[in-house]
Design a protein around this nucleic acid. Structure first.
Length: 548
RNA sequence: GGCGGAGUAGCUCAGUGGUAGAGCAGGGGACUCAUAAGCCCUUGGUCGGUGGUUCAAAUCCGCCCUCCGCUACCA
């Protein structure tokens, strides 16, 4: 027995400033499916997701509601965790950047960068909006009245400079280029890697990692004179400011692995096997982050997967202001948790953007789940019950069954696609097999065999049991294989087939999935099929929620 | 502007030199186990434009048009 592989997968942490949309949860659903796959095949798996809760913006939103930042984010986070529960997302830890161990981790990373000579006090300059803080050059507008903030056109912008700390990213250009060369799969898909490499080759500037004015953040642990910013009573000197954005948010991945308080756990889980992120933050994960880790004497993550976005009709970005968000709760209400997971991961290629709409989801749900797979299970269970009095027929041996012969190749391709993060292709591979099973029903015509068998045709009777055995086995295999994507459906399929589903709700604690996915793995065991129970009721387009 | 990618059936896309493909959507048919689902057949494309290389180009080369991604401190 080889020891189990360990697999550590993370998502980006969500900015806790508004309620989650499906386009935000999409990434978490994808990572959850990947994590479940690894748990089920027997890898020691850790899946981390969570929320990013510090920022001037959040402090101001809280203040606008007359609440403390902490109370505000607590409520925001509850929106995320409940939406994720509804989608059957099962992280091993839901991390919050306000968690005490994360505060320690971020401060320790700053200290290490300082000890390594990679951070230095400098001056940050830029347009400052009194309502929003510093704004990018690309976020402000030049008008006849001068430079204004588009969100607050009546509030004059100020050109401010501020003392804060900088990270010496420029020192890591060569090492980054070498790392990309030595680890061609570090950033995927390949076109994202090329973009990042182009950025690196264009030259790297240092970036600021502290803010003087903001107090809703992790206290910066070092004073400008290089001494600790912690005072004798344990409090932090506000003069030192707070840690800014990336030296807070990115650190969550190592906090979640045990850094720095649990060295044993950290040694086991770091470096992460996979960061799943959106294209908007690729640069920070594939350039800033490795450099920050190296500065602290830590390894870069093994792989960063940059997924695409869900776009509204016509390729428009989804946003609250455009009012074209898809509300995850309505999707779950209409399609079920598994249906929602399936349509999102099947409709949107995991390596690029796609337009989605309620209609496209309904079409996909009806075609793939209600008509193809759901109906396959339904007709199979129904026929076995009707023609064989419910006794579960055994599948034919692999070499005597067309489905059995095709199956091993399906598993191989399915596994390859999942491990390559091509989740939509993985599902397509499985659904090819669903199609093959449906074709078999029509080719073999069990109802004709049943009539002949009833009339005393022994060969027809044998053939009937064999065909239905193959179909039952196909349903078992498909239902089980798709469990990482549809964890609620798998047990329901197997239950109708009177097969045990031996995995915990998060996919742990079961037998190695690849053993279970052998054709005929339970062929010798007797069973009794129950009455068919529709898995995915067909939907009509008018089942769409009222817009809003 | 620079670097990169894409333009193929109504929609989403596969197809890197040899008589144009899939899924969905549309049309027709035979069947009936089933969630009026499934199965079979089928409509539909001067493969962005143009010039060239070649016996032969969606596929290679030139030019043009259109669209998209990246091009630094919002998470």
């Amino acid at each position: 027995m080889t020891p189990p592989e360990r697999f550590y997968v993370t998502t980006a942490i969500a900015y806790a400033n508004s309620r989650p949309g499906l386009h935000t949860l999409y990434e978490v659903v994808g990572a959850d499916a990947i994590a479940r796959w690894h748990r089920m095949v027997g890898d020691e798996t850790r899946f981390l997701t969570g929320t990013d809760e510090h920022s001037v913006n959040i402090a101001q939103q809280a203040a606008a509601e007359g609440r403390s930042p902490r109370a505000f984010v607590d409520d925001q986070v509850a929106l995320f965790t409940s939406a994720e529960e509804a989608l059957l997302i099962a992280p091993d830890r839901f991390i919050r950047t306000t968690d005490p161990d994360h505060v320690l981790a971020a401060q320790e990373m700053v200290r290490r960068a300082y000890a390594n000579g990679d951070i230095y006090p400098g001056t940050y300059e830029g347009w400052y909006c009194p309502n929003e803080g510093f704004r990018n050059a690309s976020d402000v507008q030049e008008t006849s009245r001068g430079t204004i903030c588009p969100n607050h056109p009546d509030v004059p912008l100020q050109w401010l400079s501020e003392r804060n700390w900088f990270f010496r990213l420029s020192a890591y250009q060569e090492r980054l280029e070498r790392h990309y060369a030595d680890h061609p799969d570090f950033v995927q898909p390949a076109y994202r890697r090329n973009e990042m490499l182009g950025f690196i080759r264009g030259g790297l500037e240092d970036f600021s990692i502290s803010r003087a004015g903001a107090d809703w953040g992790i206290p910066f642990p070092i004073a400008e004179n290089g001494e600790t910013a912690q005072r004798e009573d344990g409090s932090w000197d506000p003069e030192a400011g707070t840690i800014y954005v990336w030296y807070d948010a990115l650190i969550n991945y190592i906090t979640g692995a045990g850094f720095p308080t649990d060295p044993d756990a950290f040694a086991r889980w770091w470096p992460a096997d996979l960061h799943v992120i959106g294209k908007d933050i690729a640069r920070f994960h594939t350039i800033y982050w490795p450099a920050m880790l190296w500065s602290a004497g830590l390894e870069a993550p093994r792989r960063v997967w940059v997924h695409g976005f869900l776009l509204a009709a016509g390729g428009e970005k989804m946003s609250k202001s455009r009012g074209n968000l898809i509300d995850p709760d309505s999707v779950v209400a209409a399609f079920g948790a598994d249906g929602a997971r399936y349509v999102a991961l099947r409709e949107v290629p995991f390596d690029r953007d796609a337009d989605v709409s309620w209609d496209s989801f309904v079409r996909r749900y009806n075609a793939d789940l209600a008509n193809d797979f759901g109906n396959l299970v339904n007709r199979t269970v129904s026929m076995a019950g009707r023609y064989l009095a419910g006794a579960r027929p055994a599948p034919a041996p692999v070499d005597e069954s067309a489905l059995g012969a095709a199956w091993p190749g399906v598993v191989t391709r399915y596994r390859e696609r999942i491990e390559a993060c091509l989740l939509h292709e993985a599902l397509a591979v499985l659904w090819d097999f669903v199609g093959a099973a449906n074709k078999l029903v029509d080719a073999a015509q069990p109802w004709v065999l049943a009539k002949a068998a009833k009339a005393g045709d022994g060969e027809a009777e044998r053939r009937l049991a064999s065909v239905l055995g193959d179909l039952v086995e196909a349903c078992r295999l498909i239902g089980l294989a798709v469990a990482p994507f549809m964890p609620g459906t798998a047990p329901r399929v197997l239950a109708q087939l009177d097969h045990a589903y031996a995995y915990a709700a998060d996919g742990n604690d079961g037998p190695p999935l690849l053993n279970e996915l052998r054709w005929g793995a339970h062929a010798a065991e007797p069973g009794t099929l129950s009455a068919p129970l529709p898995l995915f009721p067909r939907l009509e387009a008018e089942d769409a929620p009222t817009a809003g």
